[in-house]
Amino acid sequence: MASKEYTDRELMVSAAAAEIDDGDTAFVGMRLPLIAFQVAVSTHAPDALAVYESGVIRDSPADGFIHTMCDLPNLNNAVSTTGMLDIMSRLQRGDIDVGFLGGAEIDRYGNLNTTLVEAGNREIRLPGSGGACDIACMANRTVLLMAHEPRRFVESAHYVTSPGYARDGTGRDDHPAPGGGPSALVTSKATFGFDNTGELYVRTLHPGVELDAIADDFPWDLQTAADLGGTVGQTPVPTDEELSLIRTFDPDGFWTGE
């Protein structure tokens, strides 16, 4: 069998881009979402807008590779370069349709940890929230991206940096965070949704991935779309156009390479 023609992270970018609907205002943070927004606005979502907590607002891809939201290609020809409170105020009002989050650890109900993880008997300090807690609390929906590694999937997050759904199965009904909560998780092996109780379920498997192989990665009995009356599909592979765009926006594969 020929080796596949895209990397795991290129597939993740494609899947993340698909989570941006045309006309959405998307809150974009660090890493892969920087590329995913540029793909979305170049393909199916030409009227999407990106906001960044640094104060940048864009309606188009950057004309050059960006490590960060503040790299000059991301400021150049922006719609607006303003301050953080302007951006966070939009978020707090409920005007942000979708926000992107990463995490070192995720639990069954989409609670994310980017602050402090346990490894054996020691704690490892991570950089922290940035704007992630704010996005998790207040965006209308959030899309979570992380590498598919068993250590990242935990029954209960050691530290909740960015709240997902309540652990008692009541979703966001009585949750103090006003936003809609996570709508999707994209890993390097599958995409997941969250059911009415806020619990994670397998939505699609990436090509070549078997359900049995990933179920063991989770320390709980992982549910799937089939358990909820649907079917587990296959994640669409990146189109030639998407791959071409990803490799234009990230020409050396810094974010999306192997």
């Binding site: 966070m88 707090q92 602050t115 929230s129 807690c133 704010d134 998790a136 609390c137 207040m138 530290y159 909740v160 940096t161 960015s162 709240p163 949750h175 103090p176 965070a177 006003p178």
Partner: peptide, 11 residues
């Protein structure tokens, strides 16, 4: 703010 609540940053 409407942020922070439900997080360990707050707790």
């Amino acid at each position: 703010t409407r942020s922070l609540l439900g997080s360990d940053i707050f707790a």
